[in-house]
Amino acid sequence: MTGDKTAPISGPASYFPAIEARYGRPIVDWLALVQDRADLPHMQVVAWLKTDHGMGHGHANAIVAHVRAARTAD
Rank of each mutant, 00 (worst) to 15 (best):
L31D: 08
N61A: 06
W30V: 00
A18L: 02
Q35F: 15
A38Q: 13
H59Y: 08
D36C: 13
T2P: 15
R71C: 05
A62S: 14
R25N: 09
V46W: 00
A65M: 12
R37L: 12
N61T: 02
M43V: 04
A73K: 13
K5D: 13
S10P: 07
R22W: 07
I9A: 15
Q44P: 00
Y23Q: 03
T2F: 15
H42Q: 10
A38E: 10
L49C: 06
R25P: 00
H59G: 04
G56K: 12
A18Y: 05
N61C: 05
G24M: 14
T6F: 10
E20I: 01
S14T: 02
M43S: 06
D39T: 11
A73N: 10
M1P: 09
G58D: 06
A69N: 12
K5C: 03
D4F: 12
M43Y: 08
L40R: 14
D74P: 12
I9V: 15
G54H: 13
A60C: 04
L40P: 01
V67C: 15
L33D: 07
A60Y: 01
A62H: 01
T72C: 05
V28N: 12
A73D: 13
F16R: 00
D4T: 04
T6Y: 08
I19N: 09
A70E: 10
H53N: 12
A21N: 12
T51S: 11
I19K: 06
W48Q: 04
K50G: 02
A70M: 10
T2D: 05
P26L: 04
A32L: 08
A7H: 10
L49D: 01
A18R: 08
G56T: 09
G54W: 05
F16H: 02
T2S: 14
A73P: 10
I19M: 03
A38Y: 13
D4L: 11
M43E: 07
A73G: 07
V67Q: 09
D36L: 07
K5H: 14
R71Q: 15
T51F: 00
Y15E: 10
H42T: 00
Y23W: 12
V45N: 02
S10E: 12
R22H: 08
P8V: 03
H57A: 11
G54R: 09
L31K: 07
A18M: 13
P17L: 04
G24L: 10
D36G: 10
Y23H: 11
I27R: 02
Y23F: 13
A70R: 10
L49M: 11
G56Q: 14
R37E: 14
L31P: 09
G3R: 09
W30P: 03
T2G: 06
R22G: 13
E20T: 07
G56C: 06
T6D: 04
V45S: 05
V45H: 04
H66Q: 15
H59S: 10
Q44C: 08
P17R: 04
M55P: 00
M55V: 11
P12G: 02
V34M: 09
N61L: 02
L33A: 09
P26G: 06
D74W: 10
N61K: 12
G11V: 13
P8D: 13
A38T: 14
G58K: 06
R22Q: 15
